[in-house]
């Protein structure tokens, strides 16, 4: 089974037509890959479907806007994947 990062990178590559080999765990989805908020909805949709979770985009955006978090915490891919793993684990624990 491929890693969370491999799955997310594939989703980003296919959704945003970005060469797969340019996507690394340290890539920032916005600053490095140039993904805008609308395109990120498509990525969030694909992640929601693939992992059976609901990425809390509103909460994250609010935290960034309030200065309680940085975009790096959620949109650098290795961090995004860690959040996904947490959400998947939380879902498994509550099932």
């Amino acid at each position: 089974m491929s890693s969370t990062f491999d799955q997310v990178a594939t989703i980003i590559a296919e959704t945003c037509d970005i060469p797969r080999d340019t996507i690394t765990p340290d890539s920032h989805a916005i600053d490095d890959l140039g993904i805008d908020s609308l395109d990120f909805l498509d990525i969030a949709f694909a992640i929601d479907k693939q992992f059976g979770i609901k990425l809390p985009l509103e909460k994250w955006t609010q935290e960034v806007n309030d200065g309680k978090a940085t975009t790096e915490q959620y949109f650098v891919l290795k961090n995004l994947c860690a959040r996904i793993d947490e959400l998947v684990a939380a879902k498994g624990a509550s099932a």
Partner: peptide, 9 residues
Amino acid sequence: THEGSGYAM
């Protein structure tokens, strides 16, 4: 078809 966080389809 889908209810996301802050968006829907």
